[in-house]
Each structure stands twice: as structure tokens, then as C-alpha cells.
Amino acid sequence: MIVAGCDVGSLTAKAVIMRDGGILSSEIIGVRPKPEQSAKDVMDKALQKAHLALEDIDYCISTGYGRERVPFAKDNISEISCHGKGAHWLIPSVRTVIDVGGQDCKVIRVDANGKLKNFIMNDKCAAGTGRFLEVMAKTLGIRLDEIGPLSLRARNPVVITSMCSIYAQTEVASSIAQGADQHDLAAGVTRAMAERVNSLAMRVGVEEDVVITGGVAKNIGVVKSLEGMLGVNTKKVNVDPQIVGALGGALFAKEKMLQKG
């Protein structure tokens, strides 16, 4: 039995193909103008990697922002549930999933069976989402993936007081003009990011084990900062943290198949 999950987000699309309870292949791409195209392209690439064709997929479930526009999906399920499911399969001891994506941030509480208990999402304000880091990277004149490593070597992190990404941008620009060191600036940025995510997490409460998913999980500076604020060591998934939603979709697809058969 071959199943798949397809997560069409606002910035990236992800696909995961599973067979016999294991991941065959996965893929992440930047979104195309139309969700249908994003879904097709990412699935094609994942299929290629697994040497399969679309017909070989017995059941596909879509999730994410564009989940209702995935033509080859038999059903769609909310990304909240899919992230909880995927994280739980990878790390059964997980009770809190913190998903920090490109344009939103979710904190998901699950029970011992990976079932959804509570959640909170911010998709209205750029602060605490990947977008904040993008804006900051541009202001600092560095690549997104440089922020984390740079921040780890800070001596004197710059303090950013504004909650708002736009105002924070001005604070950073002002610091740059006053000659602040790149490492200190990067550390200020990761800390500001962690503060915002932490704020959101506090509103639903955090229970260990905590798993961070989404693209921002790859930013070591934010992860360490957030761990400090939460007072926990988060558990790291052994797959790309961006595919957890699509993985959850594939797992739900497997369940649906088993129900039918």
C-alpha cells in the first residue's frame, strides 16, 4: 500500500510518499502562482525520487493553505491535525508541537495518542513567523540561513523592543548605523523571534516533550533561544522539519485505506 500527503502552504509545498509504514521519499518546493500547480510539481518530484507514478498512489490526503485545490487528493485535513499526527509518529512522547512556518505560527497540544487537545495560531501578524526573519535578513543584508549560525557567536545581543516587524526593522537599521556587530544583531533577531513564539505558546501552555516543526526549526539560533525561554530541551525530528504536515497527511491516508479494507 502506497500513500501520500501533500501540504500546500503559502510559501512552500511539501509531499511525502510512504510505503509499508516507512517514508519512501519527500520533497519541498517554493510555491507556484496556483496551488494546483504547486501540488502537481511537488508530487511529481517526490514520485520521481521514489521511481513511482501518480497511479501508484493508493490514497493521498492534502493539507495546508491550498488543501482544497489539490486535484489528486482524495480528501483534505487541517494542517493542525496533520502536524500533530506527523510529529507524534516521529516522536511518540510529543505533547506540544510548535510549528513556525513562513507566514504563520501554530502551537498544537496533543495527547498521548497524538490526538488534538488544544491549539492556537497566529496568521495575522508577521511577528513570530518566518516572515519576521526574512524581513530581518534583508535589513541585515544576509541570507536567511546565516542568521542562526551568526547569532550563536554573539557577545552582546542587541535588544529589539518593538513587537512589530516593521518597527523592529527600524530599530535594527538604527543599530546598524551605530555600528552594531553582525553577530549581536543576529542574536537580537533570533531572540526577538523566540520571544514572539514564546508569547503565543504561553497562551495554550507548553507540556513536554516539545517538538518544533516548520522551516524556522532549521534556525539553530531561534531554537536555542526558544528552548531557553520555555525551559525545555526540544526533541528534534530526524526528517526535514518542514515535511511534518505532509507526513501527517500521509499517515491519515494510511488510516483511511485501512478503514476501507
Binding site: K124, C125, A126, R131, F132, C164, S165, I166
Partner: peptide, 10 residues
Amino acid sequence: LEITSQCTVF
């Protein structure tokens, strides 16, 4: 046209 985003960045 209606602008649905409440945030300047979005």
C-alpha cells in the same frame, strides 16, 4: 479592492 491582511508586512 479589499485588502484583507491586517499586517503591513502581509
